[in-house]
Amino acid sequence: MQALPDVISPGLRVLFCGINPGLMSAATGHHFARPGNRFWPALHQSGFTPHQLAPAEQQELLSYRLGITNVVDKPSARADELTRPELVAGGENLVAKVLQVQPEWLAVLGVTAYRDAFADRTAAIGKQDRTIGTTRVWVLPNPSGLNAHYTLPKLAEAFAELRRVS
């Protein structure tokens, strides 16, 4: 059983994909539950949602044709605790999941995890050449508060780029 159930259904516009659940997310059953995580504010500030959802409101995403999953199901305090084999296996599972529900876009939240999971050393933030079935792939910055390279405004703008094409 998954430590953190997916928020997923057929017909999604965007399936957001975290790296793996943090310990707080696993404990609460809500994606991106740690207060310092900027996923929910960036999602709202980019225009994907009309108001900022709380992690406990994650099921509301489905009404906006949005969903959430993870590359790796295993919770950890930090994503860098995952091994490359765990990320590769997670990438394989993610492909199967995407082929099953066929979202318009898969948005992976973290370029390093994407590079490892899909053996794509040259991947950068933004639209990827790869597709999974008919699903197009986009890489977004990791919204973790540990990712100091992206302020919330920069993160929201990266999310907004995807929103504009989705």
Rank of each mutant, 00 (worst) to 15 (best):
Q2M: 13
A3R: 10
L4G: 01
P5R: 07
S9C: 01
L12P: 13
V14F: 07
P21D: 11
A27D: 13
T28S: 15
H31C: 11
F32D: 11
A33G: 04
G36T: 15
R38Y: 00
L43E: 09
Q45M: 15
Q45V: 08
Q45K: 13
S46L: 13
G47T: 08
F48N: 05
A54G: 08
E57W: 06
L66K: 13
I68H: 12
V71D: 08
S76A: 12
D80A: 10
E81G: 07
L82M: 09
R84W: 03
L87W: 04
L87Y: 01
L87N: 01
V88A: 08
G91R: 06
G91S: 09
V95F: 03
L99S: 04
Q100E: 15
E104D: 05
L109W: 01
G110I: 02
A113S: 14
D116C: 13
F118T: 02
F118Y: 08
A119M: 04
A119G: 01
R121A: 14
G133I: 06
R136P: 04
R136V: 07
W138D: 12
W138E: 06
L140F: 07
N142Y: 06
S144V: 09
G145K: 08
A148D: 05
H149F: 05
T151I: 02
L152T: 10
A156L: 01
F159A: 08
